[in-house]
Amino acid sequence: MYNEPIFLKPVFKDRIWGGTKLRDEFGYEIPTETTGECWGISAHSHGPSEVGNGPLKGETLNSVWDKHRELFADQQGEDFPLLVKILDAKTDLSVQVHPNDSYAREVEGEAFGKTECWYVIDCEPGAELVYGHHAGSMLQFEEMVNENRWEELLRKVAIKPGDFVYVPNGTIHAIGAGTMILETQQSSDVTYRVYDYDRRDDEGNLRELHIEKSIEVAMIPHEDADFEPVLSGNEDLRIKKLVQESYFTVYHWNLAGNVSDVENPSYLLVSVLDGEGELNVEGGMTSTFRKGDHFIVPSTVKSFGMNGDARFIVSHPTI
């Protein structure tokens, strides 16, 4: 039986809006001074993670998913369902929207659409997100887009460190400048740009927009998602369930001591936001973790212990 966590090597993505905080704050070796994304737990073909420890060392996560489904509660489906990223938005991201599963499959040939959620790791004072819009109908939405009435159309929301934002598919959204988030999402790379501030790429060309597809998949009128965080645990491990919906369940864990018999409901995707500590599996080796680590606790580990001082975002598919 496989009885240890699966640590993964992150994949980095250069982005026009990226910066250096993934290096400065997490100590990653980033490839460029405009590195916008760390794909910490990924089996997507555009950037699969590589296992960094144990008997599966050197294999990609998508390969492990294909060959060792027993590590993932024998979950059905051709593709690993989730993707976990850390994003460094030095400047504003484009205003965008993502499709649902059926549209992504039929139009793009992707296995999944994209519902996602964000935990705000840090942000500058006064930072904002675009979350939703003010159009009351499809006709009004199209008119405001075609007339470039962006300030009137887009709904902006102030944020602070520790905030959590749930972004179902169809939600018009954008991460604002000076923000670092951890994103848990369906394993999809389909993004439709609605507006990009007339930015140009390295060759001086305006970046591609996807207005027609955006209008087809956007939620109009906008409705805020209804969810309520749930607290549990004790002083040694405080657990806040941030959201539970059809694709994933996401938690914030605050470890401040020593806990045993932490239950594993299926398989857990774990990203260490801050601190360090140890994870112990009965009959297995002790694994150390620190800020910036990403690992999976496989379903073959039914329970485990932890000690240390650390903060995590933890998720699992809702199955």
Results as ranks from 00 to 15, higher is better:
K21Q: 11
Q96K: 07
R15H: 10
H222K: 07
G292Y: 06
I220T: 11
K213E: 13
H44F: 08
E212G: 06
F304P: 01
V272K: 00
Q244P: 00
D309H: 13
S45K: 15
Y28I: 02
Y28P: 01
E29T: 12
G136P: 05
W65S: 08
I6P: 08
E78S: 15
N62W: 01
L242P: 01
L269S: 05
K240C: 10
F312V: 06
G292C: 09
M180H: 04
Q76A: 14
E124F: 04
E235W: 01
F295Y: 04
E212D: 14
Y28F: 15
V281W: 00
R23L: 10
W150P: 02
L237Q: 03
F7H: 02
E110H: 05
T60R: 14
N169C: 06
L83T: 01
A177L: 03
E152D: 15
W150Q: 06
T32Q: 11
M1T: 12
R238C: 07
D74L: 08
L87E: 03
V97T: 03
H134S: 10
C117P: 10
L231F: 13
D202N: 13
A127E: 08
K240F: 02
H68Q: 11
S45Y: 11
Y267T: 01
E59V: 02
S187P: 08
V97A: 01
H173M: 09
A225V: 08
Q186T: 15
I239R: 15
T179S: 14
L129M: 15
F304K: 08
R193E: 04
D226Q: 13
K57C: 10
R207C: 13
M180C: 10
Y267E: 02
I319K: 11
V145L: 15
M1E: 14
F304I: 03
S271I: 09
T179K: 12
R23Y: 06
D66S: 15
M219P: 02
